[in-house]
Computed example of a mutant assay.
Amino acid sequence: MSTDLLSIGMNFERWQDAVEAAIATEQLQVKGEVRGGQLVQFTDASGAQINILAVEPFATFAGFSSVSRAFADVTMLNDVLALCEISDAAGNEIAAVTANLSQGPLLVDEGRLEFQPISFTALGMDIQLYSDAVSYENATGGVLGMAFSESAQLVDIGSGAKELNASLDFSAQVLEAEYRRNALTGCRFIHATVDGLFPFDVCIPDTISAELPAPGSVIVGRAVLAANLLAYSGGGGCGGSCACGSGGCGGH
């Protein structure tokens, strides 16, 4: 099972099961044409997303409709993974991260896109919770508000030593948390807005905590970072007849 799927309430044993369930809803949206195929997206009422690239190299990847807002220079590294150099409103760089970008396959040949409005969500995989900043710092010696993308660092130094991915190690303080329920599966998950190094949301399985993380508590761990460009639009509805089919979309 994909742990980033679990973070948004999709408790499927296989990616293929998630794709087939999304197709069965007849609520897929074609986001654009890619090399003779399609980029298709399913968005659940909870904000959970499944992105399907229905053309070679065929990929499926999770996303989320985040409430956070940031700005970044965006460069596609492959059909899905983007290098995002995040800036503040004045254009000063805050952090460089890699993220699975929902519109990525449509932008892979576009080159560097500067100062794009973008939203980020950390889809939690290996997560711990602390009651407050003092408890976190005493227990770990870590710095609150940390965000580290190993793949962004590898890109910066030009190293090909490891395969690049969208993992992010982070710590952030909870501003607000709520339960959301994935309509595709009926499973509940936790969505939080946080105070971190840059603006992003966090989604985690509700099995991590018996109750909602309180404001001021700390979320720390590793996540898959998902992103959406906010100023990009394209495509339209396709109902249940998208070209993906039952065998053409593998897991990314």
Rank of each mutant, 00 (worst) to 15 (best):
L230M: 12
P57T: 05
G235D: 02
F42L: 05
S46L: 03
V174F: 05
E211F: 04
M1V: 10
D73A: 11
Q38V: 05
R181L: 08
N138H: 11
R181D: 12
L83N: 12
A96K: 14
S65L: 10
I219Q: 06
V67A: 15
P205F: 00
G251Q: 12
L154D: 11
A59I: 04
A166Q: 10
E178C: 08
V34M: 11
N100R: 03
L154E: 10
F71V: 12
S149H: 08
V19A: 12
R222K: 13
V218T: 09
Q103D: 08
V67G: 12
R14G: 03
A192H: 00
L106Y: 03
S131A: 15
E211D: 14
A152S: 13
S217I: 02
L164M: 12
Q41T: 13
S217R: 04
E33A: 11
Q116C: 12
V19N: 13
E85F: 04
S7A: 15
Q41I: 05
L53Y: 13
C203E: 10
L83E: 14
E114L: 11
S46T: 04
P205Y: 00
S2V: 07
E20D: 14
G196L: 04
R112P: 05
S135D: 14
L230F: 08
D206Y: 02
G145N: 02
S167E: 10
S2A: 12
D132V: 10
G32N: 02
I94K: 13
E137N: 08
L168N: 05
E163A: 14
F12R: 05
I204R: 01
D206W: 03
G186R: 05
G32W: 02
G37F: 09
D156N: 13
A90C: 08
S87V: 12
A21Y: 02
M76E: 09
T60P: 03
D195A: 11
L83R: 14
D169K: 10
V80M: 09
G9W: 00
V74W: 09
S246Y: 10
G63K: 01
D132N: 15
E114P: 04
G247A: 09
C84W: 06
P57L: 04
G245E: 08
W15E: 13
M10V: 11
A70D: 08
A231K: 13
A226W: 05
E93F: 01
S171Q: 02
E33I: 06
D4T: 15
